[in-house]
Design a protein around this nucleic acid. Sequence first.
DNA 1: TTAAAACCCTGTAGCTACTCCAGGGTCAAT
DNA 2: ATTGACCCTGGAGTAGCTACAGGGTTTTAA
Lengths: 143, 143
Amino acid sequence: MRIGQLSQATGIGIETIRYYEKVGLLPDPARLPNGYRDYGPGHLDRLAFIRQCRSLDISIADIARLLDFRHGSPTDCNAINQLVDEHLAQIRTQIVSMRALESQLIELRKRCSKGKRTPDCGILNELTTSARGKMAIKRFPSH
Amino acid sequence: MRIGQLSQATGIGIETIRYYEKVGLLPDPARLPNGYRDYGPGHLDRLAFIRQCRSLDISIADIARLLDFRHGSPTDCNAINQLVDEHLAQIRTQIVSMRALESQLIELRKRCSKGKRTPDCGILNELTTSARGKMAIKRFPSH
DNA sequence: TTAAAACCCTGTAGCTACTCCAGGGTCAAT
DNA sequence: ATTGACCCTGGAGTAGCTACAGGGTTTTAA
């Protein structure tokens, strides 16, 4: 099948498929006499796997590792478990910091209400004064 | 003050300060006779404000808008409130999708346990079969 | 028959917000 | 005189695409 059909079947854009080929996630397909890429069922399968991993936000590098496990000779799959564990830990860390961010923004938002003018804007003032508070104490002579 | 001192005072790297200048967040400083950048207190203040905004994950483009409000002629600050509201909404959306991601990964992780071999790895199999399930139904003739 | 539409190709640039490096110049102290 | 700390410019690299420009090919409709 040609690239457009593969794109339709997987829901992955044509440019993205070519990108995956370039970075080595997808093996180079055969070529038709006119130079068009000619994909087989193996490519379809592999690309669907890739999409599934990407939807779980697994990085290209990690997908490459998973594909090696999938198509390589059988080994212990502890490394796979570890990969998923690490990814999970990373996402949990991100959730924690985003929640912290959320509450900071909620606090910030409370500072200003409707109808104020910029010089009295509590948000701008808060941003300014908390910035000053975090500056290094050290003083620099002006000369 | 020179760029190294400004970097020390704000905790922002030298390269980053030059980057902010390049993208127009920080006005071009005066130059010493030898070509070194020469910053004044206004730059320090502005840079601290920028750092504060970045720590709240506000984009460069939005910081530029906030700086315009801060240093421009007084106006209604509803646009500032709206900016913060939108940023907050965006972060909340991200938190929701990351939590969904987290539970999907937890489910995935349950699939495989210690000591299995790759062909029997539940994670690999789950990734494969759920990928197949999401493929377009349409069939493509092989010729 | 021909012309338009739809498909494909390569190669390159753009996006975010930095970060790093090469290859230089400048300045204070030893 | 030289070492080391500081500074300069300009360009490349990061992740994962996405969007061209500028071509060629194939199919379909008039």
